[in-house]
């Protein structure tokens, strides 16, 4: 179980997270929605230990990673796979080396087993015979799928997705959504997905939560999200520029 309690994070004068509480139960898929700059990615990076919160705790299976030793943090990170928004594949490595990277560092598999696992993971994301290609030779969708294969190759218990469908066409988005559903179905992974894509959220989520101005303002099932009276959620779900979520409707022209 992942438990986030009263997490605060400030960058300069800006409060990005203001007392966030979150609980992700084993086996469920939690989708975090929210406007750009609401702090979703910061929250995800705090959960994986990339950013240390100013206050509060993040517990991975009852181990508080904000206060534990670097060895315990390393152990906790072994349980988590992270899918980056832009895939974050290592430029100097080919696809095989990218997917095998975590296996070499986080598992005790031998070379033969690593080879098998890499081929298996790439097949699972629908990519075959591309092991020798460099990331620069892949399309956006392929990069995301290789990133996904790399994150799940060492069979983590938790997978965190940062905007997995951003910048992809609707067909590729659906392929990625199905992959996430299959991962849960076959590998029983617990997932936290940060997304703007409401269609995707409805399809994959067990629970949807909304982050606004650094606070969790909504928590419910996809059905509850569809019928909620919360004005912030309604504005976001409907994609309207009119509502309580402040946006600069003049695109900065007002300052001219």
């Amino acid at each position: 179980m992942i438990k986030v309690e009263n997490v605060h994070k400030q960058f300069g004068a800006k409060n990005v997270l203001c007392g966030v509480d979150l609980e992700v139960r084993d086996g469920e898929t939690l989708v975090i929605i929210g406007a750009s700059g609401a702090g979703k990615s910061i929250l995800l990076k705090t959960i994986v230990g990339l950013i240390k919160p100013d206050m509060g705790s993040v517990k991975i299976d009852d181990v508080d990673i904000t206060k534990c030793s670097s060895l315990d943090l390393h152990k906790a990170q072994k349980k988590i796979g992270y899918v980056f928004q832009e895939a974050a594949l290592f430029d100097s490595f080919n696809v095989f080396e990218n997917v095998a990277f975590g296996l070499k560092n986080l598992t005790s598999l031998n070379e033969k087993e690593i080879n098998q696992r890499v081929v298996q993971c790439l097949a699972m994301v629908g990519l075959e015979k591309i092991e020798h290609l460099k990331p620069s030779e892949l399309s956006g969708g392929m990069k995301k799928r290789v990133g996904l294969a790399r994150a799940v190759a060492y069979q983590p218990r938790y997978v965190l997705y940062d905007e997995p469908t951003a910048g992809l066409d609707p067909i590729m988005s659906d392929i990625i959504n199905n992959l996430m559903i299959n991962l849960r179905k076959y590998l029983q992974v617990t997932s936290i997905v940060v997304t703007h894509d409401i269609k995707s959220a409805y399809k994959i989520a067990d629970r949807i939560t909304m982050l606004c101005k650094g606070e969790m303002i909504f928590n419910g099932t996809p059905e509850e999200t569809k019928h909620t009276k919360n004005e912030y959620v309604r504005q976001f779900v409907e994609g309207s520029s009119c509502g309580p979520i402040n946006v600069d409707k003049t695109f900065g022209m007002g300052r001219i």
């Binding site: 990339l50 390393h74 992270y82 980056f84 990277f101 560092n105 790399r150 994150a151």
Partner: peptide, 8 residues
């Protein structure tokens, strides 16, 4: 960041 998450 990816290096960190992959235990390196």
């Amino acid at each position: 960041d990816a290096l960190y998450t992959l235990g390196t």
